[in-house]
Simulated assay, not measured.
Amino acid sequence: MVRVTTTNRRTALRAGAAFATAGALAAGCATHGAVAHPAPVTRSSGSRAPTPRHYPAHPTQVTHGPRTRPHVALTFHGGGDPATARALLTEAERHNGRVTVLAVGTWLDEHPDLARRILDGGHDLGNHTLRHLDINAMSESEAREEITGCAQRLKRLTGSIGTWFRPSRAPRASSLVEQLAHSVGYPHVLSYDVDSLDFTSPGAAAITRKVLGEIRDGSVVSLHFGYADTVAALPAVLEELDRRGLRAVTTTELLS
């Protein structure tokens, strides 16, 4: 078990107080109404919009990276209060970390500027379906629409369909969803080997213990935007990663 220092606890309390509204807590996996035509994001010269890559050494469904390097990937399901998202990105950058954001399409409709914010920070941006429904339970046509709907929004906003696809409401894609993602242009489905369970709002200390108790070289961690507990836990997580010599990188860097 990792001890959270007094400084970390104060940081966590301040962050938790700033974001502990009922709306923010419920927003991480919520579905939002779509806006038909969001304004395109004008990307600055420093932003990147990479496309998906095939990694022959890794399976179609990626759960972790190489266990031989001190790199880990913190991956966030993109939804909820944009202020929470910005706070998490800023905290990662303060520790020289980079993350992977799997964005919900309707969330991008409501907050198109966040696509630029994510890319300009040097982070990965990917596809977490259009409406964040149970994609593995859908028909082929419905599932295809969920994947392509988000891909189209990413393409319109950034010029790319995003670097990764992660299924909604499931840690792994069904064989059908895997095939559909591949047909849209995603060679890999991004899963994870560490689940923070932050969407259950267990408290910042519980998230910190869960992540740091399981994370190791090459791990891919599942986290969420939109939850105050996650904001409160992140400083302690990042500080302990620094102490262990583990570097938080994008999933693209983790597998490269």
Rank of each mutant, 00 (worst) to 15 (best):
P82Q: 10
R48A: 14
T63S: 01
T200K: 10
T251E: 07
H77L: 12
E178H: 08
E146R: 05
H71Q: 13
R43D: 09
H182M: 04
V237F: 03
S44M: 13
R48D: 11
H128K: 14
E91L: 06
L102G: 05
G121K: 05
V35S: 13
P70Q: 12
F199C: 08
T100M: 09
E253P: 00
S196E: 02
D81T: 06
C150F: 02
V184Q: 03
G126P: 02
H54A: 13
N127H: 12
H123R: 04
S196H: 01
D242M: 04
Q152W: 06
L130P: 00
D109T: 15
A26S: 07
V35K: 15
G105W: 14
G185V: 01
C29K: 06
T250M: 07
T208G: 07
G23R: 14
P171K: 15
S222G: 02
A24Q: 02
E146D: 11
A17E: 15
D134F: 10
L89H: 01
P187G: 06
G162R: 04
H71A: 12
H58E: 12
L197F: 11
V35R: 15
A15G: 10
G226A: 07
L241T: 01
G226T: 06
D195V: 08
N8A: 12
I161V: 14
G126C: 08
A83C: 04
T251A: 14
V41A: 15
H37I: 14
L74C: 03
L25S: 10
A34T: 06
A248G: 11
T129I: 10
G126A: 09
N8F: 01
T7W: 13
R156W: 09
A103W: 07
S168Y: 00
D134H: 12
L212K: 09
L74F: 03
G226H: 05
E110D: 13
D134W: 10
P59F: 10
D242F: 00
A87G: 02
V2Y: 02
G149C: 12
T68H: 10
A20C: 13
S222T: 11
H128A: 09
I215Q: 02
A73W: 00
N8Q: 14
G46T: 15
L157R: 01
L89G: 04
R116F: 07
H224G: 02
R117S: 11
S222C: 13
A103M: 13
T158M: 07
R3K: 13
V184N: 02
V211I: 14
G80Q: 09
L255T: 06
W164Q: 04
T21P: 02
G162N: 04
G126E: 05
S191K: 05
A36N: 14
A49Q: 11
V249N: 06
A92L: 13
L254R: 05
G28R: 05
H128M: 12
L133R: 08
G79T: 04
R243V: 08
L89Y: 00
H54T: 15
V211C: 09
P235Q: 09
L108D: 09
H71V: 12
